[in-house]
Design a protein around this nucleic acid. Structure first.
Lengths: 406, 406
DNA sequence: ACAGCTTAATTAATGTCGTCATTAAAGTGG
DNA sequence: CCACTTTAATGACGACATTAATTAAGCTGT
C-alpha cells in the first residue's frame, strides 16, 4: 500500500509540510502554537522555521501579546513568496484570476464563450491569454507563479496528461493539458470544477474543519465533490462524484445522459423548468436564460401553487439525493452549492426534512446539511488552491533541484 | 491534516511496516524483492529484516532459484509468531475461528442464535466461549493471540468503545465492546460484517490488487463496503456504505427502515420473495427459510415466466444500484457478494448490462463487475484480518513497551 | 577442480535530523 | 535594577538510511 520509502530526509520534508500547512491554513501562529499542534520539540520547530524564513517562505509578522515572559513571534506564510493562478472554465465563461499566497485576488480576466462552438483550442487560447493578462496586469513574473489550477465543468481524467470529457461543452477526450502546455511552461493542475469548488469551500468556506464532507452542486448540471480524510477523493479515473447521474427514480424521466431517472433529470435547472412547464399545462417559465427563469420560478412560488408544488417536489428529490450521499458516505457535513441550489436556498429546511425521511437515523444525525459560503465564483479560487496544495505537500521545496532560488 | 509529527524513529516504524506488509500480503519474498518494491537500500532492508527475524516475526524460508550468483534467501512472516481470532456475529449464528498468521484456520466454534431473542449478553457470552473454545482446542495461549476481530451485521459506531446498532438483531446502541471486554483482555476490533467481508476479499479474494473497490453485499439485507486507496472507508461515524437504504425508486415500496424506495426494498431476499408473490397473484414461494425460497425461485425461473420476470427485474434494480456505486465512487472493481447475490450469480450478465444502461460510459468502462470469490464464510476471516492489519500498521511492534517478548 | 563471473548480503564511513538539557534573550512587576 | 517567567537558540547525543567497499555463495567452462 505505502510505496514511499522513508528516509531521514523525508522526516524533514514531512515536518516542513506540516508546519507550512498549519501556517497557511490557520493564519499567523507562534512557534509555540506550532509546537503544541504538531507535537514537535521546540528546537525542531525553530530549526525548520529558520529554514523556511531563510528561503523566504515564511515571515515574522509582529509579536504576540504577553503578560510576563518573552513575547512570542507571530509567523505566517509570506504572501508574496509566490503567486498562483486559478482558472474557471465554465460553460459560458473562462475566468482567470491571479492570487498571492494569502489568496488575495491581484488581477482578473474573463473571456465569454460562445456555447454554440466551444472549441478546445479556443478555450486553451483564452486560458493562455488570461495567464498573460493577469500576470502583466499585476506585474508578476511568471517565474514567481507556482502553477495554474484549472477547474473544468466535466470529467477530468488524470494521467500523464489530463484529458477532459465535458458533455456540456461537447468535449470528448480533449487533451486540454497538452493544448495549454504548448503555450506555457507553468505547472498545470486540471480538475473537475466541482472538485475545485469543494476544495475552496473545504479550506475557506463551509467545509472548514470537516474531515469527511460532500459538496453537492446543483446548477445546470448536478455533481458532487467528495472529501474524505480532508482531501478530495477522485476514484480510479478521476470521475468520482457523479451524483447527478445516479438513479433516483428507477425508470423515470429520461436524462440528457441517456439513462432514465437520474437525479439531474429532476433537480437540474433545466429539469426544474421542464417539470414546471409540464405541471403548468405546457406554458413556459418566463425569462431568458435558465438562471433568470429559475429566479422567476422561485419568485412565482409566493403566488402560484403550481410553482410552489414544483419547488416542494424538487426539495423532495434533492433531499432524497442528499440522503443517498449521507447513507453511502456518512459525512460530517453536506454542503449545497451551485447556482440553482443557491437560488433554492429557501428550500433548505424542506430539503433537510426530506433527507431525514429517506436517510438512516444514525448517519443523518451525524451530518449537518448547509449551504455553501463562497458562491459559485469560488471555482477559480479552488483551482488556485491546487498548486498551493502541492506547495504545502512538498514542504515548499520546488520539485526539481532549483533550491538556489533564494 | 497530518497531525503526526515525524521523528527519526518513525522512519524505522514506517519501513518495518512497509516490509512486513509486503511480506504478509505477497507471500515469500527475497531481500532483493523487498529492495525493489520498497525502494530502500540493501543495507536498510537487511537491517530491518534482521530485527524482524530477531523478534521472531519473520523467518527465512528456503532459497530462491538462481542461475549464476548467490541465491537469495526467501523470507516470510512467521506463521506461528502470533494468532488471531475472527468472529462472525450473523443473524442466526455466532462463528468463531482461530487463525495463524498464514491465515490458516486452526480451530472453529459455532453457536446458533435464536432469532427471536438475540440478547447482547448472550452474543457476548458466545463470543467469549468461542475464544476459550478455539484457543484450548488448538492449544494456543491467549498471550499469543494478537486480538479478536468481530464482524457484526449492523452499524458499528467506533468511539472509545464500539457501539452496535443492528436492526436485524433488534439492537440499538448496544455496547458490545464493553460486554465482551468484561470477559477478556484481548484487543478487540469490532466492525461491520460487510466491511470485514470486504477486507477479506480485498486481501485474499476478488479485490486483490485493486486500489478502489466496492463490495456490494446482498443477503437478507443489502450493504456495501467501500475500499478507497486500499483501505476501508468508514466515514464520520463508521456507517458509510449503507447502500441498501439509498433511494432507487423515489416514492416506491416501503422498506423495513421506514423510508420508501430503498434498494433493499427491491433486491433484498425478502423483497424478492415478496415481489414474486405479488406478481404471482399472492401465492407464496414454496420453501422454508429465505435462503431455500430464493433457491427455489431461481430454480423455478427455468419453467415459470413469472419467476423469470421477477428475477430479470431484480437484475435491473441491482444493476441500477451498482451503476450508482460506479458513478459515485468510480471504482476499479465492483464485487458482488452475500448469499442472495451468490444465488443470483446467473444474473451477472443481466446485472452488468443494466449497470451499463444506467452508469456513465467513462466510469462504467473503468469498472469490472464480478462475483466474490470467498463466499459468505469469509466474514470471520475478514474480521481476523483486523488485528493483523494493526500488526502490519505498527510494524509488528506491540503498542505498549513490551518489546522484551523475544 | 579451479579460475572467472554474477548476484546476494554485510560492514564501514558519512550525513541528516529530532530530542533532551542548557543557555541566551526578552519581556513584566515590584 | 533585580527577581520571575516565557520564548528562542545551542550543543551533545542517538537513531537511521545512504553510498561505497567487502565478503559470501553460488554458477560455468575449460
Amino acid at each position: 500500500m505505502e510505496l514511499a520509502r522513508a528516509t531521514n530526509r523525508s522526516v524533514r520534508l514531512r515536518n516542513r509540510s506540516a508546519l507550512l500547512s498549519r501556517l497557511f491554513l490557520d493564519g499567523p501562529l507562534t512557534r509555540q502554537d506550532l509546537m503544541r499542534s504538531t507535537g514537535l520539540s521546540q528546537p525542531a520547530i525553530s530549526n525548520v522555521v529558520s529554514d523556511l524564513i531563510g528561503e523566504g517562505l515564511v515571515v515574522e509578522a509582529g509579536v504576540a501579546e504577553s503578560d510576563g515572559g518573552r513575547p512570542s513571534m507571530m509567523l505566517r506564510v509570506a504572501p508574496r513568496f509566490a503567486f498562483v493562478i486559478g482558472v474557471d472554465v465554465g460553460e459560458t465563461l473562462v475566468r482567470v484570476e491571479l492570487f498571492d499566497l494569502a489568496m488575495t485576488v491581484l488581477a482578473r480576466a474573463g473571456y465569454p464563450l460562445d456555447p454554440a462552438r466551444t472549441e478546445p483550442a479556443t478555450v486553451a487560447g483564452h486560458v493562455l491569454a488570461g495567464i498573460d493578462a493577469v500576470t502583466t496586469q499585476a506585474r508578476v513574473s511568471c517565474a514567481d507563479v507556482l502553477g495554474v489550477g484549472i477547474g473544468v465543468s466535466g470529467v477530468v481524467e488524470q494521467g500523464t496528461e489530463a484529458v477532459v470529457h465535458a458533455q456540456a461543452l461537447g468535449w470528448d477526450r480533449v487533451p486540454l493539458e497538452r493544448l495549454i502546455r504548448s503555450g506555457t511552461d507553468l505547472p498545470l493542475h486540471i480538475d473537475n470544477g466541482a472538485n475545485t469548488l469543494g476544495q475552496a469551500e473545504m479550506w475557506f468556506g463551509a467545509g472548514r474543519g470537516a474531515r469527511h464532507a460532500v459538496f453537492a452542486l446543483v446548477g445546470s448540471g448536478v455533481g458532487a465533490a467528495l472529501m474524505t480524510n480532508g482531501v478530495a477523493y477522485r476514484g480510479a479515473s478521476s470521475s468520482a462524484g457523479e451524483w447527478g447521474h445516479t438513479t433516483l427514480v428507477y425508470g423515470g424521466r429520461t436524462c440528457r445522459c441517456g439513462a432514465r431517472g437520474c437525479l439531474e433529470a429532476y433537480v437540474g435547472a433545466e429539469a426544474i423548468i421542464d417539470r414546471y412547464q409540464e405541471a403548468h399545462g405546457g406554458r413556459a417559465v418566463p425569462g431568458g436564460d435558465e438562471e433568470s427563469r429559475i429566479a422567476a420560478l422561485v419568485e412565482a412560488a409566493a403566488s402560484s401553487p403550481t410553482a410552489r408544488r414544483v419547488l416542494e417536489e424538487t426539495a423532495g428529490y434533492l433531499g432524497a439525493g442528499v440522503a443517498n450521499l449521507i447513507n453511502l458516505f456518512n459525512p460530517e457535513r453536506v454542503v449545497l452549492g451551485g447556482w440553482t441550489a443557491m437560488a433554492l436556498g429557501g428550500l433548505l429546511p424542506a430539503i433537510r426534512e426530506a433527507a431525514g425521511r429517506q436517510a438512516l437515523r444514525q448517519p443523518y444525525e451525524q451530518a449537518s446539511i448547509e449551504l455553501c459560503r463562497l458562491g459559485v465564483d469560488a471555482v477559480a479560487l479552488g483551482a488556485a488552491t491546487l498548486p498551493v496544495a502541492r506547495l504545502l505537500a512538498t514542504g515548499g521545496l520546488r520539485p526539481t533541484v532549483d533550491n538556489h532560488h533564494r
